[in-house]
């Protein structure tokens, strides 16, 4: 394949996939350690009603209203889960199950009631995303990477995903100590004056941000897979948080690149004509990585986190 084709058709989606995977995997480390892994699952389900409501209010499929709608829905769902957990006095998992199914069902119903035949808005899109379509038409070859005119034509998702990834990295750097202490020993963190609730809240908000930005580019499946699989696999590799985060970034990158390549070129190698879903393949590869870590990971044994 020529450099032109690769730079124009494969590089942007691959980079977006890697950025999305890293943006989700970074907060995912803490969600897994805090036993909140399924928050990502709940958030990615309620993205659908969020974008449908945004579409109904604005009447168009454009990025910002949809992102705001999805973000709003994510925050509403987190608050509802917390409210139901406390009012009904039930475990968090059941409260999540109640909230995200109801909100997802509401989203599907609204979608059915709305005339969306003229726009590209459906359940499948929210689930799988359309990574393959994020191509860079202005690219003429590797040289375009230093050509400002061509760079201006990059898919906007790329810049957005990069900004979100930077915000998340910045959050982790600023709050690293507090985040680390409050994740492993909340009582101790509170006693030494760490703002435990603020940090916990920010973590959920940033996870929602990562989920919302990533769903637009790559769909909800990757979001859930990347929140959980790379951090879970990394946790089986080491006992040190810093190293675990590094492993998770490596696994996320590996899954995104290998998944994209396998989806785009894998079928051609074995004689099929059409590519398969990149989002699905990235999730699959991350699962294989986790499976390998679960069988060979040096720190796979040990005590589970206490409730």
């Amino acid at each position: 394949m020529s450099g032109f084709e690769f730079v124009a058709l494969s590089l942007p989606p691959m980079v977006i996939g890697v950025l999305a995977a890293i943006a989700c995997a970074l907060p995912g480390n803490f969600l897994v350690l805090r036993r909140q892994a399924l928050i990502g699952d709940a958030i990615s389900h309620v993205v659908l009603p969020g974008i449908v409501v945004a579409f109904l209010l604005t009447g168009m499929v454009s990025t910002w209203p949809m992102m705001i709608g999805a973000g709003g829905a994510a925050i509403v769902s987190v608050l509802l889960i917390e409210a139901i957990r406390r009012l009904a006095r039930i475990e968090a998992g059941a409260a999540m199950g109640v909230v995200f199914t109801a909100m997802f069902a509401g989203g599907v119903l609204l979608l059915e009631q709305t005339d969306t035949s003229s726009v590209h808005l459906d359940v499948e899109h929210a689930l799988y995303g359309n990574l393959e379509s994020l191509i860079w038409l202005d690219a003429a070859g590797w040289g375009s990477l230093v050509d400002p005119v061509a760079l201006a034509g990059l898919p906007p998702e790329l810049l957005r995903m990069a900004v979100v990834a930077c915000v998340i990295v910045a959050f982790l750097l600023v709050f690293w100590r507090g985040l680390k202490i409050s994740t492993f020993d909340e009582g101790f963190a509170r006693s030494v004056g760490v703002p435990v609730r603020l940090i916990g809240g920010l973590l959920v908000v940033l996870s929602a941000l990562a989920a919302v930005a990533a769903f637009d580019a790559v769909g909800s499946i990757i979001v859930i897979a990347m929140f959980i699989c790379p951090p879970a696999a990394a946790r089986l590799m080491t006992d040190r948080l810093e190293i675990q985060v590094a492993w998770s970034v490596g696994f996320a990158t590996l899954s995104a690149v290998a998944g994209y390549v396998l989806a785009g070129y894998g079928p051609l190698w074995i004689g099929f004509e059409n590519a398969v879903s990149a989002a699905g393949m990235i999730a699959t590869v991350s699962g294989l990585v986790l499976a390998v870590a679960a069988i060979f990971g040096p720190h796979r044994k040990g005590a589970q986190l206490p409730r």
Partner: peptide
């Protein structure tokens, strides 16, 4: 067989 908690295992299996 690993030290992963059930919520992480659930999320991993459902997404993969």
């Amino acid at each position: 067989h690993t030290r992963l908690n059930e919520d992480a295992a659930i999320g991993a299996v459902l997404s993969v």
